[in-house]
Amino acid sequence: MAEHPVVSLDEAEDATLADRAADGDMRSFEVLVRRYGPLMRATATRILGGSAESDDVVQDAFVVAWQQLDRLDDGAAVRGWIMRIVSNKSVDRLRARREHADIDDHDPVAPVDHSPDRVAETRSQEEALSSALSELPEPQRQCWVLKEIAGYSYEEIAEQLDLPTSTVRGLLARARKALTREMEAWR
């Protein structure tokens, strides 16, 4: 019937892909899946503190994205929009965990998986950061990742984690101090 576009969809801009996918073009959505899936998985893993549930969360996020793409006004903003969806889905999982646990701010909760980052000899400052993050008390870790990695505002974090904004600020301050201390100690 019709020829393929001279420009491969793989090279199309986000806005074009988002517009086409919003109209039902599965091929365009697939390009977005390939383009941002790995980053979404990394984001989910960081927020969750481990990768066990990341694939599920990413899958849920893409289902929502497919359903709601036609409500996205500016197709060029699709990357940030999809990242926000996967971040929110990740936080939903965190909340579900919290309902079944009694979090004491001063006790770090063991991470969901024991990644190679936690090997005694950290080989690089990047790994040192990962290791330091995994050692933060869970509420501090969550606030820090949502602020510094997922780009939430204080108010958004407060809303997502169901905490007063002042508590969020306090947790972030403690996290920042702990991380700076750990990173400097590594040096």
Binding site: E30, V33, R34, G37, A42, R46, F62, V63, W66, S130
Partner: peptide
Amino acid sequence: LTLTLLDRDVLAEPARDDTWVSSILENLS
């Protein structure tokens, strides 16, 4: 270090085959 953390995470991920893509697409109505 924070600015590049996610990008490095992505690079550090083990190579995967395409099944993760098809399993996502299968769920779409």
